[in-house]
Structure formats: C-alpha cells, structure tokens
C-alpha cells in the first residue's frame, strides 16, 4: 500500500470502510464495542470473514428484525444479534483461549489513547471517582494476531489521541500495530508512528496537530 491522501476528512462510515478494506478474506475478526462495530456493515458479502464475539459466539450475524430479539443471543455490548450458518457457541474460557492463543486474526478496538510505540489505553479515563470496569479489553488487546485501533484522531476537547506516551492507565503495552482515524491511517510500533494515508490534512499539518514526528510507512506492508 502506498502513501496516499484524500481531500476530505473521513466520516465514521468511511473510516469503517477503510478498516474493512484491510481485512483479508477468510479472516476471523473481533470488533470491539463502539466505533469498531460499524466495520461489520462494510465487510464484503462472500468474503468468508467470520465475526467472533468474546461472550461466546463465532459466526455472529447482524441485528435481528424487530420483535425477533433473544436475550440469550447477544454480543459483547449486550446488544441482540443473530447467528449465521456455520456458527458455534463456546464458554468464556474457550472464547478467550481463542483470542489469547492467537487464533483470531484481527481485533479492531476503540481507544482513548494510543502511543507511537503501540501502547493502548482504552479502559479507564483515570478519573479518581470513576467506578472502574475492564471487561475483555486487556485480553483482546494482547490476544489477536493483529490488533488495530479505530478512533477519531482528536478527543472532543481537541486533544490528540495519538501520543508519544499514554497518560491514561494502560490496557496493553506495544499491542497496537495500526490506527485508523478520520484524518489519517498511521502505523505504530517499535519504529514509532509512520503515516500510511492522510485525509484532508498534509503530513506537516498532521505532525503539528499531534506534536509528533511522523515517518512514512514502508510500501507493501501487510
């Protein structure tokens, strides 16, 4: 893949389509709660991609028709879903063994912060009076063969979410390999942050916005 740019900042649907475009046919994929769930709408029919939900289902299908919801058929966000032909159910230890054991090809997660090294913070805002909850976030972050993040590049207050060092409590260290945002796709890892594509912003403007030095990704990666 070569470094390209588009004139426009991507909306959520376009971000989801961009993530989906990188998922190889036949992959087993886990989509995290929030923005990543939109990716399901952009997986091509007939691609043979199988969705995993960590509460115990492979072969998850779309939302049921109104009135067809089953409280015992839900996804990790506790939203009613459906089962597709070829689906399977399993218990929690098996589900996370599937994840931790590297059997899931791609996991797409949301994030509060990602560092240039690929550290992820997505479970706690760090607020001292918040009631904590972690769910499967830490297991998902380190388990999949490839963990990518889908997020807006800036928080609502304009603060960059791609940072030199995460200031929020970590979910996992060095676990993220690529970040898909509304303004750019950026690879992260031991070599630092490297731009893959930009949308409506120049490379230099992106560096200014983030206060980070950004490299260019190698062509042909992935």
């Amino acid at each position: 893949m070569t470094t390209t740019s588009a004139a426009q900042r991507l909306d959520k649907a376009a971000m989801a389509a961009r993530v989906a475009a990188d998922i190889a046919p036949g992959s087993y994929v886990n989509l995290g709660i929030g923005l990543p769930t939109l990716v399901a709408d952009h997986l091509p029919v007939g691609s043979g991609i199988t969705l995993h939900t960590e509460n115990g289902l492979l072969g998850m299908g779309p939302s049921p028709a109104p009135g067809r919801e089953d409280p015992e058929l839900i996804n990790a966000g506790k939203i009613p879903v459906t089962e597709l032909p070829g689906a399977s159910y399993f218990h929690q230890a098996d589900s996370f063994a599937m994840m931790r054991g590297g059997h899931i090809d791609v996991c797409v997660l949301g994030a509060f912060q990602v560092s240039a090294r690929g550290d992820l913070a997505n479970w706690s805002t760090g607020s001292p009076d918040a009631v904590p909850a972690v769910g499967g976030a830490m297991d998902l972050a380190v388990g999949a063969r490839r963990t990518v993040v889908m997020m807006t590049l800036l928080a609502k207050d304009g603060t960059p979410k791609l940072v030199a060092d995460c200031t929020l409590p970590l979910t996992g260290m060095g676990c993220v390999s690529r970040v898909y945002t509304d303004l750019a796709v950026i690879d992260v890892g031991p070599g630092g942050a490297r731009v893959v594509e930009t949308y409506g912003v120049t490379h230099a403007a992106l560096e200014d916005l983030l206060g980070l030095e950004l490299g260019l990704t190698d062509t042909g990666e992935d």
Binding site: E54, M99, V134, G136, A137, D139, G143
Partner: peptide, 19 residues
C-alpha cells in the same frame, strides 16, 4: 456501595476471570 467504600472490588480482565 463502591463509592461509599462498603464493598471491596477485585477487578479482573474477563479472560483472566474465566481462566
């Protein structure tokens, strides 16, 4: 109960809990 300090919470990642 958590804010009042009347319950102890051991927060465990879901996969660790299962395992």
């Amino acid at each position: 109960a958590y804010r009042a300090g009347s319950i102890e919470l051991e927060l465990v990642p879901q996969g660790n809990l299962a395992e």
